[in-house]
Design a protein around this nucleic acid. Structure first.
Lengths: 231, 231
DNA sequence: CTTCGAAAAATTGGATACAATAATTTCGCC
DNA sequence: GGCGAAATTATTGTATCCAATTTTTCGAAG
């Protein structure tokens, strides 16, 4: 096969179907909090804004419904879905359960290249001090440690849980407990891995996840309570 | 509101949208093995068979794609998705990890009503000796034991993993190891729960899941190998 | 006989048009 | 003015039509 003469045609990215583009865009917007929980997603409006007909919009909404990001009721349309406090807590419990397992499998297989990647993400987190990219970097750090476990389905599942939880915490409370504590915990986790302290590393990771969740959820509870009385 | 004079209109079940009906039907067919892995799902053909236009079909396919039951490639259509041997193994590992956790949470909360339900499913499994409903009954037995844990997301997740794995095993090999062994293991699990032996129950459940998986997968491997050479 | 390529057919992706249902407004009545 | 029913509007669900792409067919050259 020879190289194409002209690349006047659509770029590689735009070569996806309209439906796929709509899915990607809406998913990003929802997961980043740009489209808040409870928002009505009107097909015609979305179609106009994105410059497509309603057909790709509808196909995208069905896909996002299956992913749990929106909920549809017959003849009433789609709304951005939310998670209850209980749902959030359970999400973190599942993560704790699966991530400690991934870590256990990983530790004996971790090599210099993995540590390098993990430390790179730690450094970026420390550098972008006020950035909102933190949650993505945080995930990449964790994922770097789980990579050698070679459990792609589990990793993908945990990633979805992670991303889907974060959007429910307003930015001001996301870094509760302080970056310093987070950095310390990450560093300790890394050290325990390097020392091959499987059990201690697992315990620490579990605490890291569950305690982080507890802090976040407590502040979210307070916020929601306050929001109610303010109505 | 007064009762309707005539019920000439659609029944309660048919009142769902065409898309929802198509999703439900295709999902059932795929999970039960009626539509084998790799089968091409032609939109027009499905539309004709189900008596709807292609639009609901396409919306349904997008939903099923997000559920992981079909895979779509641009302009090439949808095929029923399959799981590799590695995927199957990982599926069972995740189940082992999450179900032991559910059981741990459940055991202290299990009461007579839960045991009654569990035993009811055991009895049905013993009764329908040659039935294909076995896998569903088996799941219901397990679910009965996990109910008091009150972790709906986890339960649903595990249920999906369970159902999605089973369809890949042809019926002849599904009950490998024999119903007798299965019955014994289930009975032992139930006894350990009743005695409050949390750790032993967890260990036994883990073995039950992982060993069952190993048997099934070994036979599947042999079958696929044989299928290849027979080509 | 095989292989390459162009035309034809089949199939999917998307837009428009229409039907069914839900939400809103209007209007008569008290 | 307030209330309820009917009409109007808005929105979703489905079918039909057209465009874009892939697959197949078929023929000619090697």
């Amino acid at each position: 096969m020879t190289a194409p003469i002209l690349t006047t045609k659509t770029t590689a990215l735009e070569r996806k179907t309209a439906t796929a583009r709509v899915v990607a865009l809406l998913r990003d917007q929802i997961l980043s909090g740009g489209l808040p929980e409870g928002l009505q997603l009107r097909q015609e409006k979305l179609a106009a804004e994105l410059g497509v007909s309603r057909v790709p919009i509808r196909e995208a909404l069905h896909q996002l419904e299956a992913e749990g990001l929106v909920r549809q009721e017959t003849h009433k349309g789609a709304v951005v879905s939310g998670l209850s406090i209980d749902d959030l807590e359970e999400t973190y419990e599942i993560r704790a359960r699966l991530e400690t397992w991934l870590l256990e499998l990983s530790i004996p297989l971790l090599g210099p290249q993995h540590y390098a990647r993990a430390e790179e993400w730690l450094a970026r987190m420390a550098a972008d001090r006020e950035d909102e990219a933190w949650s993505s970097q945080n995930w990449n750090f964790h994922a770097a440690l789980y990579a050698p476990a070679n459990r792609p389905q589990t990793l993908e599942l945990v990633r979805k849980l992670y991303l889907n939880a974060y959007r429910h915490f307003p930015l001001p409370i996301r870094l509760t407990g302080g970056r310093d504590r987070m950095n310390r915990e990450h560093q300790l986790l890394l050290d325990l891995c390097k020392q091959g302290e499987i059990e201690r590393a697992k315990d620490h990771l579990e605490q890291h996840i569950l305690m982080g969740a507890r802090h976040l959820i407590n502040r979210l509870k307070a916020l929601r309570q306050q929001g109610k009385s303010a109505n």
